[in-house]
Every structure is written in structure tokens, then in C-alpha cells.
Design a protein around this nucleic acid. Structure first.
Lengths: 351, 351
DNA sequence: CTTAGCACTCGGGAACAATGAGTGCTAACA
DNA sequence: TGTTAGCACTCATTGTTCCCGAGTGCTAAG
């Protein structure tokens, strides 16, 4: 059975009101809305229908109506009006993004904080990688007595290093040999393509510095794997407490600790083949504890084969329109920022 | 007026009981304790005295007594019995510490998580540096078309790097010259010893690669400053909600957000010249919001001029003995771990 | 100095009534 | 046939009252 226009209008109004008030909405309140030219009684009839159809719920006989999960779903998919960001809002988002940032993980942490602040809700962020990472280049630097610095440049242009202190003596030429061997055999190889066989080969041709090889290999494998693992950051947990549905400590605690314990860690997988902004309404969430919690997520492009995701966690009754708008704007601005030609990398030399 | 032995015993018992129950303690409960051979009436008299002296408080006429801040202070300083860690406890702490860790900041994050888990309270951790950090050594690596890797080794033996992409052409020999200049002029210099004068000198002798200098200097200064700034990590916020005193959302929210907003960031300064474990009881805390919250902190040594601090945030009524014991044990184990000869750094080459 | 006894205080919970927002249904109206 | 006014009914919430009991301080006796 298809919904009549009027039913849609009523449903939308109920969700809108409920989002604002967090309290069951009665027929009278709806009837009083400016562009609703019907009496409470008529609205009541519509509400009874919508309840029968599963879009609304009634906490108890003498209370107003509350949207059901199906109601939210419909709202999000069809009914919700676009929210237009005000100039103030876009500006404060832009200012936030302009802050300088360093490494990817630190950056994602900051992004999460910013999103949380912009939405007044806990926010999550992840950076994940579509393709396997490999090493592009090895360098070994002799750094004083018994210290060697290993510098590794990844296929993503990220550079990592490790200080190796070792008791045995190797000299510059040994290192040169070893680094040549490494560059010849181990570049372009992802973590799971590395075989004991290959290890054997490297060891055999490594000469004097062979004892360094296991340390190096371990570091590299560790690094590559770490690059692939997506590390989910959550920021602004506390803001969940501002929401009326979490005024009961028990509930708040359950939700917050399940988040702390990684209940959201499968979100990246869920988003994998989704595009744009995705809304997970209450029961669509995987974990039991989060069943009256919703998640809104958006992807954005970091460049270098890295994909970012930002999202917001909140009560099922959250202002989807507003949240979605802010997230999209954020995502867009971030994409732009990452993909514009890197210019301020090298400011014109002074004088 | 000095406290009699019996008064001390009563006070200690009251605090002990209150720590467990979180509820005002009455004379009867104290009188019933195994080694308390007095009647409730006698205890009442003592309690009246202790109240007059400011060590106890009475929420209302017909309730039991609750320790005042002064009461806790006395308890922590003189009365509290040593808590002995059980074998189970030490073991689980050891297991936690054995986990492998990488960079210092990541490490401190993990430590905070561990401490929080071990104490069932929110935990904080900081690593701070007593002396200024300087650069020990510069290396520049030519990494393919227009890419240069800057590798910097700090006085702390930490190694950092940055990829510089630049449009202009420099060759190996230019880089050699520049790195020689850098090593000659800018090593051993801390962030605030760097003068425009020095910058001038470096620029003049840098030759072809002079346009790299500003980027390098900016990175180095940034890095050095970042090394000095102490970054405070908080973990396990949620556990605060388990405590009965934070069952009121408003209170919990106030405390949690003031923590989130950095209310604890001056703790390192407070600890600076303290030694061992320090307990900050309620009102001794600086921020208004944290006035019925206490903090227990311990220092430990990371080596390389780095100093670690771990601590716990909880209600003023917290089990100081237990918390202190766990913290000290943690601190000790961490110190040991960091300062033992680095051996597994280089496992014997296989075969 | 210790303790039994007792009158007194007062917070918290149970029981109960009043309030009012909201509903569903029926009947009248356009 | 769709809309609306009217009305009886439901039920969560709020306020009131009352009672209970834990705990106290004081006094007087041991």
C-alpha cells in the first residue's frame, strides 16, 4: 500500500518534531503546524493508519507517537528535506579544516574531533587503504657507533624509519651492499607476498650485514601490515550524554563501553561498497547494544590510495538532515584539501 | 590537638568502609567491626569529636558520617594500610606490559588503557622531557624525481623523517653539501636557541639547495617543539560512570567534558617536583568542576631523558590503597622494562 | 571512661489522588 | 465521502501524605 501525500506529510512532520523535542508527538502539535490545514481529529486518523503500517509507535496508550525504525528509514530515504548549511556553519568548518596537520593517523584524530564538534555528537573517523602497500625504496644510514638508521619509503610516499642498534661491526660498504640487495629484491612486494623463500635469498646475498636482515624484515612486515589495518578513532564520546535518550546512566554506559570496546570496528567493511553518505538506522546496526543508536557515515578521498571515512554516532532520533549536510560538506572540503596541488609544501625561499 | 590512637582507628575504619560502600557510615557499623571493642555509643562520641575537628562530615542529621577532604588527606598520608597486590594482579599487569610497543605516543596511549583497565577507573598518561631536545644528525636522501627524504636523528635517539617534494633540480652533490652544512651548524641546538642570525648563515652556505632550507628549518623547529610539549592521554573515560557518585548524568557530563577539554593538562606541572606517588584530594585539584574528584599519580622513568607519568582519576572516595599499589607496581614494571639492556632489538640471526 | 537507654531528626519509599495530555470512536456536518 | 467536534477513557506524571527506620545526641547508670 502506497502512502498518500498527506500521510507522508504527517510522517515527516512527526519525525521533524520528534527530532527536536525527543518527546512523543501528539495529534494536536501536528495540527497546529503552519501548513497543516487539518484538525487534530483528522491527523489522529492518519496517525492511526501510519501506526498500523508500522511507521509509528506508541510508547503507551495515552502518549503521542514516536517514529519506528521503519519510519526513520522512510524519512531518511524519501521524506527528509535538504538541510542547507548556513554561511556561519560552512565558515567554521573551513576554519577547522585549515589547521595544519601532520601524519595520517594524527590527522584522522583531529578530523574526528572537528566532526564531533561540528555535530555535537560523538564522531568516528577511519583511514583505510584500498590496495596493498609495498616498499618503494630502502635506505640505510650509518649513524655513529653501532647505530644504523633504516629509512623506508612506501608506495604511498609515506616515509618511515627505525633506529637499529647492534653490537656487531659493519661498515659503510656493507650497508651499501645490503641496501642494494633490499632494493633489488624486496621492493614492490606486499606483506603477504613475502615468502620464506625470498627471505632465504636476501639472507644469502646480504654479505656481512646479514644479521641485520631479520630485524629489517620484521620491521617492514610490521609496518606494511599496520598500514593496511584501519584504525578507527572515536572522539567526543561525552557528547552522547547530552542527548536525552542517554540520560539513564546504564544505557549511556552500555553504549559508550561497547563503542570503546570496538563495536564500530566493522563499519569500514559495511561502507566498503557503499557510496556517498550512508545512514544506519538503529536495528540495522550489527551490535545488540547499539540498537537504538544510529550511525551516519560519509567517504572521502585522501589521495595516495587512501580512503577516509567520517561519521557520527547518535540516537536514532537525530537530526539526519543536519548531520548529513555537515558530514557531506566536511567530506567534500577534506577531499578538496587533500587533492589540491601541494604548494605550501615549499614556500618560496625567503629573500 | 593530636589525634588519639583510637580516633585514628575510627577514622580509618570509616574511610575504609565508605570506600567500599559509597554510603554514609554509622556508629553501629563501626562498632561491629571485628577488632573494634567498643559500643556504638562510644564510637558516636569519637565520631562527634572527629566531626568537630573537621575530619568527618554529616550529610544530614540522621545520616552516618562521610570523610571530609581533610579526612581523606589524613587517611592517605598516615592511616591507610598498604595494599598488597595478589599474585593474580601482578601477573595480569605483567602480561599487559609485555605487549610490544612502538612509538612513544602510541605507547603512552596503550599504557593509559592498561592502567585504566587495571584500576577500573579513567587513567591518564603523559611523557614529558626534562631537558631540551636537539638534533644530533641530519641526513638527506635523494629519492627519485624531485623527492628528497630528510632524516633527522634527535638527541634522544629518536629518528624522524619528512618527504620533501620540490619542483627545482638539485643533485646528489648539492644534497651532500647541504647536509654537511646542516650537521655543522644546526646540531646540538634546541628550538629556542635558533636565531634568525643562524638561519642567515645556513642559507648563505647552502649553495644550490638553499631553497630547501626554510622547509627543513620549519620541520625541525616543529619537531623539536612537539617533542617538548607533553601530550596528555586519557583512556577509559567511561569507567567513571561505574562509580555511584557519577550516576547523575549532569555530574558525569560536567566532569567528563572538563577532562576532555584539558582540565588535567596542568597535572604534569604539579607533579614536576613531586616524587613517588602523589595524591590530589578533591578540592586540591585546580579546576572547579573536579572538586569532588581525586587524582593519583606516579612518575616513572622511560630513559633517554624522557619521564613518564601515569595516573588515575576517580571519585574522592576511591580505594587509594589499592589504586596506589597498582600504580606503583605499574610504574616500577615500566621503568624496568624501559631501562633493561635492549636485547630483543636484535634477535640472533637465524641459522 | 564506657555504655545502655531513650527521645528526636529526617531522608526515602509506599500509597494514593489529582492532573492533563493524548487517544479512539461516534455522530454530525459539508 | 472526507472532515471535524465532542466525549469517554487511558495512563504516565506529579504532588501529597504518611510511615519506617537508621542514625544521632544526651543523660544517667555502671
Amino acid at each position: 500500500m502506497e502512502l498518500t501525500e498527506r500521510k507522508k506529510k504527517v510522517l515527516r512532520s512527526i519525525v521533524d518534531l520528534y527530532i527536536r523535542s525527543a518527546e512523543p508527538v501528539g495529534s494536536k502539535a501536528i495540527a497546529q503546524l503552519p501548513d497543516m490545514n487539518y484538525s487534530p481529529a483528522t491527523i489522529r486518523n492518519e496517525m492511526a493508519d501510519l501506526t498500523a503500517m508500522g511507521y509509528l509507535e506508541q510508547p503507551h496508550t495515552s502518549a503521542g507517537r514516536v517514529p519506528s525504525a521503519a519510519g526513520y528509514r522512510l524519512y531518511v530515504d524519501e521524506l527528509m528535506a535538504d538541510y542547507r548549511l548556513s554561511l556561519d556553519e560552512t565558515q567554521s568548518i573551513n576554519v577547522a579544516i585549515e589547521e595544519k596537520m601532520q601524519r595520517v593517523d594524527e590527522l584522522m584524530e583531529k578530523v574526528a574531533k572537528m566532526v564531533s564538534q561540528a555535530t555535537d555528537l560523538p564522531a568516528i573517523s577511519v583511514a583505510s587503504r584500498s590496495s596493498g602497500v609495498t616498499v618503494k625504496r630502502f635506505d640505510l644510514i650509518m649513524a655513529g657507533a653501532g647505530s644504523i638508521i633504516l629509512v623506508v619509503m612506501l608506495s604511498t610516499d609515506e616515509v618511515l624509519n627505525k633506529l637499529i642498534k647492534l653490537p656487531l661491526n659493519v661498515d659503510e660498504s656493507d650497508l651499501k651492499l645490503l641496501s642494494a640487495v633490499l632494493n633489488a629484491t624486496m621492493t614492490g612486494i606486499s606483506a603477504d607476498e613475502f615468502t620464506p623463500n625470498l627471505m632465504e635469498r636476501v639472507l644469502n646475498s646480504a654479505g656481512m650485514a646479514a644479521s641485520l636482515v631479520p630485524v629489517i624484515v620484521e620491521f617492514v612486515m610490521d609496518t606494511l601490515r599496520r598500514q593496511e589495518s584501519t584504525n578507527l578513532t572515536v572522539a567526543g564520546h561525552v557528547r552522547l550524554l547530552e542527548q536525552p535518550e542517554y540520560r539513564s546512566i546504564d544505557k549511556a554506559q552500555r553504549v559508550l563501553s561497547s563503542i570503546d570496546e570496538g563495536a564500530l570496528s566493522n563499519l569500514p567493511a559495511v561502507m566498503q561498497n557503499a557510496s556517498g553518505t550512508k545512514v544506519l538506522v538503529g536495528p540495522e546496526n550489527i551490535t545488540e547494544e547499539l540498537k537504538d543508536t544510529s550511525v551516519v557515515m560519509t567517504k572521502f578521498d585522501i589521495g595516495d590510495g587512501l580512503q577516509g571515512m567520517i561519521g557520527v554516532v547518535g540516537p536514532t532520533r537525530m537530526d539526519y538532515a543536519k548531520v548529513t549536510a555537515r558530514l557531506s560538506y566536511f567530506a567534500e572540503s577534506l577531499s578538496k584539501m587533500f587533492n589540491k596541488p601541494e604548494q605550501e609544501q615549499l614556500p618560496a625561499a625567503k629573500e
